[in-house]
Design a protein around this nucleic acid. Structure first.
Lengths: 129, 129
DNA sequence: GCGTAACGTTACGTTAACGTAAAGGTAACG
DNA sequence: CGTTACCTTTACGTTAACGTAACGTTACGC
């Protein structure tokens, strides 16, 4: 259940380069165990990488993601900590929904444009025949 | 209806720096008219800037946006052109909806996390009193 | 014992999207 | 006429997120 993977196995599974994984580690997004000098990635590391990649696809910076991960981790501590965490998370959530709304807008625009283009194309082709 | 704005007026209206506007021009995203050497931004330029900023907020690169704008412009030409344009636009649309779906996922995750955090915080505070 | 495959660290290179001086033109104001 | 405000171009600096050598070290098959 909790097998560990080498760096190249990780790269294959997640379609990332070793450089990227080492980079994420350098930036404190991952902290794989070591067997000697060699990195070993646990299930927890894999879960974190999933979140990292998802965050990236959503347009978040690695620093943003680092903070989010720290939150996820850190929620067990004291009351003030937790309150602060929730605050930050709330802000982030607002950002994300705002971004999604904008995306929806842009999508709608583009769909209209495409529809119109398609009509125009149909007319052109009809006229041609 | 078609007043033109100076660069600083544009900057104020859109909350961007002059450097950014000149940069966008350099990258062929804008092409304001000139009165001597001075830039004059028309309604069309303002519309384009709106799209540029929206694109940015959605996580598109300036190069992506340049292509989209070129499409919007260029749709009046011949059949092959239009067909190609529609193809590219379709791809882009797929990308955008995919990104929105991921965002929705991430949002849902974060909401759950926040809800749990809030409960925990409530318990902490209840226990404290 | 030797090649080579997979891992490691160090460090310089690259692209995007501007920021930030440096240096100069022009137009109105006092 | 000087200065202040706003504009211009040119050009080097900066940050993020890696890419890409260059070079050293185990571990393994032969």
């Amino acid at each position: 259940m909790s097998e560990t993977l080498t760096i190249s196995q990780m790269c294959e599974q997640f379609s990332v380069t070793p450089r990227a994984l080492r980079f994420y580690e350098d930036k404190e997004l991952l902290e794989p165990a070591r067997k000697g000098t060699q990195r070993l990635y646990s299930a927890r590391d894999r879960a974190r990488l999933t979140l990292i990649l998802r965050g990236k696809r959503c347009g978040f910076s690695l620093e943003d993601i680092r903070q989010l991960l720290a939150m996820y981790d850190h929620s067990g501590s004291n009351e003030a900590q937790l309150a602060r965490t929730l605050e930050v998370a709330g802000d982030r959530l607002a950002q994300m929904t705002a971004q999604r709304d904008e995306l929806s807008l842009a999508i709608a625009d583009l769909q209209i444009e495409i529809t119109q283009g398609a009509e125009k194309l149909a007319q052109l082709r009809a006229g041609k025949v």
